[in-house]
Design a protein around this nucleic acid. Structure first.
Lengths: 74, 74
DNA sequence: ACTTCATGTATAGTTTATATTACATTTTGT
DNA sequence: ACAAAATGTAATATAAACTATACATGAAGT
């Protein structure tokens, strides 16, 4: 519950960018794989801090990874 | 604990922009005043969703309100 | 066929963000 | 000086983010 209003392009970026695995992204972002899984599934929106770290992994501004509004969960 | 690595310009923006009070910002962002207080004090970093909402109140991109890295809690 | 690796899924537990309430202090206006 | 509004601060409570672990499935390579 708690309609998540924040979406992201993590999965796309993992592939397009570096063919990075969930585990690798998790490591680079300093979280567990479960967190990445949950984010890709849109289960919840990350903390702002984690959002910044993930964007940094992809070398992108935060708003090119995460966006507000659309209910883009599949 | 939990060194907060995310800073923000909320307080500055409240004044510069609209002379908005903590309570008004809280209302517009859909949170309580306590949350605004905590954010201005740098006690913790908000959820990404709240960060988006606050940025939207100020009509600014998220990264002009919140930033990563510096511990700017003077 | 077997193993390895990436992913999906689930559950329980810890930590952190946020709400709620309440009261004290400072600021502003009259 | 007084009242009202804005802010500071603090305690307890709930919800949401995140960890840890475990097991199951499917693809890829040998």
């Amino acid at each position: 519950m708690g309609k998540n209003l924040v979406g992201n392009h993590i999965r796309k970026l993992r592939f397009n960018h570096d063919e990075m695995t969930q585990q690798q992204l998790a490591d680079k972002a300093g979280v567990t794989r479960q967190t990445i899984v949950a984010l890709e599934k849109g289960n919840y929106s990350p903390s702002l801090e984690l959002a910044f770290r993930i964007a940094h992994v992809f070398n992108l501004p935060l708003e090119e990874v995460f966006f507000y509004g659309e209910n883009t969960k599949k």
